[in-house]
Amino acid sequence: MILSGFLDTLGALVLLGGTLFLALGGLGLVRMPDVYNRIQAGTKATTLGTLLVLLGAALISPAWSVKLLLIMLFLMFTNPLSSQVLARAAHRAGVAPVASKDALADDAEDLA
């Protein structure tokens, strides 16, 4: 009983930490100057944030851990992938980055 109470509290704390990262990601989305930096802020913070939320949930309800692990694996794989596809789409659509150097645009000019 004491153990389950401890796990509940620990899980809730981990979960709370996860939501803090989500909020930081949201702040990054608001503050960053261009779409590439926004993707960076969004993808990293939401991935770790969601992983921590799922880990916290698994500590609170150990019976659900297998399914939660499945969601974690899925998110770890798809989350960066959608960010990369978005970054690529932005660059191909001609959104210029706020950057000191753009090797991708330089190479595209060479080929053209």
Partner: peptide, 13 residues
């Protein structure tokens, strides 16, 4: 994917 999730880097192409 790993590069995208690590400090300050994002794979674009």
């Amino acid at each position: 994917n790993a590069i995208t999730l690590t400090p300050g880097t994002l794979t674009c192409e």
